[in-house]
C-alpha cells in the first residue's frame, strides 16, 4: 500500500499521521513530547512499525511543528513546513469553505484566515504564552482535575467566575484568590475558559477578520468548555472536526502527497533503533556568533544547521 507520513512535533505533544492515496487516515498517533523531541520521534516510529501492516510503503514524509527542522533531519523528511501552513491545509481538507482556523496547542496559539482554501492572513502569539494548553495543564494539575475532564466540569457551571486573564501568572493568583473566597471549582474552571478565550481574541485575533465557518484545532480544542466559551463570545458555531488534535500532521502529509518526491529520503522506521544525538556549538567565525546545531546518527554527522552564512549548513 502506498502511503504518506506526516509528523508534527510540538512543545507539548507529538503527532504522527499516515494517509493513503485517497487521503484517508490509516493511523494517527498523539502522545506527549515530554521535553525530548528526538525520543518522541523515535517512539512514534517504533509504535508505527509495530502497529502497521508489513506491506506498507512510505512514498513521502513531511515534518511540521516547532521541532520541524530537527524532526525533518533525523527522519529524512522530504518536506519541512511551518505549522501554520500545515494546519491551514488540514483544516481546509475537513471543511473546504473554512474561513477561520483557531489553533491552540501546548505553547502556541494561532489564528489563520483563509479564502478559497488558502491562507491569506495569520497571527501567532509572539512573546506571551497566556491562554495556551500548557497553562490549562498546570491549572488542572493544581486543581487536581485530570485535564481530559476539564471541559466537562466547565460545562456544569451556571455562573462562571470572572478571572482576570491578561497574564497567565496573574490569572493564576486571581484564580487562587477566587478559590479562597469560596467559589466552586466548576465556576472557576468555566471562568478560566472564558478568560482564555477573551485573552485569545484580544491579543492574537485582534484586528483579524473572523468569519464563519470557524474551525477549532489543537490539543485545547478537546476541551468542550473552551469550545462553548468561543461559541458564546463569538456568537458563531465552532466546528471541531474529527482528528482535531492531529490536523497539523495530517496537513503536512497532504502537502507531501500533493507534490510527492520521486524517491523519498525517509530513513525508514529502523532509524528509531539507532543512536541519534544532537549537539550545538557557537561558531566564532564572525560577530554573528551563530548557534550551530549538529545531528549525528550512530556517530556520523548527517546535518548541521542554524548558521546564517551557510559555512556549516552547506
Amino acid at each position: 500500500m502506498e502511503t504518506y507520513l506526516g509528523i508534527d512535533v510540538g512543545s507539548i505533544s507529538t503527532k504522527f499521521v499516515i494517509i493513503n492515496e485517497k487521503n484517508e487516515i490509516l493511523h494517527a498517533l498523539y502522545f506527549r513530547t515530554e521535553g525530548n523531541p528526538i525520543n518522541a520521534v523515535k517512539k512514534g516510529l517504533r509504535i508505527l512499525k509495530k502497529e502497521l501492516p508489513k506491506n506498507i510503503q512510505i512514498n513521502g514524509v513531511g515534518s511540521t511543528g516547532s521541532a520541524r527542522q530537527l524532526t525533518g533531519i533525523i527522519t529524512g523528511a522530504d518536506i519541512i513546513k511551518n505549522e501554520i501552513t500545515a494546519h491551514a491545509k488540514g483544516a481546509a481538507f475537513f471543511v473546504p469553505d473554512v474561513r477561520t482556523v483557531i489553533e491552540i496547542g501546548g505553547q502556541d496559539s494561532k489564528i489563520i484566515i483563509l479564502e478559497n482554501g488558502v491562507a491569506v492572513d495569520f497571527a501567532m502569539n509572539l512573546i506571551c504564552a497566556a491562554g495556551t494548553g500548557a497553562f490549562l495543564d498546570a491549572q488542572a494539575f493544581r486543581l487536581k482535575i485530570p485535564i481530559e475532564k476539564f471541559g466537562e466540569i466547565a460545562l456544569k457551571s451556571k455562573s462562571p467566575t470572572p478571572i482576570g486573564s491578561r497574564c497567565t501568572i496573574f490569572a493564576e493568583s486571581d484564580m487562587i484568590h477566587k478559590q479562597q473566597i469560596g467559589h466552586s471549582v466548576e465556576d472557576i474552571v468555566a471562568g478560566l475558559c472564558q478568560g482564555l478565550v477573551r485573552n485569545f481574541l484580544a491579543n492574537i485575533a485582534k484586528g483579524k477578520n473572523i468569519k464563519s465557518p470557524i474551525v477549532f484545532l489543537g490539543g485545547v480544542s478537546e476541551n468542550i468548555g473552551m469550545r462553548k466559551a468561543f461559541e458564546e463570545t463569538l456568537e458563531e458555531k465552532i466546528i471541531i472536526p474529527k482528528y482535531n488534535t492531529v490536523a497539523g500532521a495530517f496537513g503536512v502529509a497532504l502537502i507531501v502527497k500533493e507534490k510527492p518526491p520521486k524517491k523519498t529520503k525517509f530513513f525508514g522506521f529502523e532509524v528509531s533503533e539507532k543512536d541519534i544525538r544532537c549537539t550545538s556549538f557557537q561558531c566564532k567565525g564572525c560577530p554573528n556568533q551563530c548557534e550551530v546545531l549538529e545531528a549525528r546518527i550512530e556517530g556520523e554527522v548527517i546535518a548541521r544547521w542554524g548558521d546564517r552564512c551557510g559555512k556549516w549548513s552547506s
Binding site: 505549522e83 501554520i84 491562507a119 501567532m124 509572539l126
Partner: peptide, 25 residues
Amino acid sequence: LSLDEQVAEVGLQTRIEAFAEVVNN
C-alpha cells in the same frame, strides 16, 4: 514583527515562513 533581546530566531523563522506562504498565495 516586534524585536527585542528576548525574541527567539526560531519563532521569527516560523512567522516568516508562514508569511511567505501567504505572500505566495
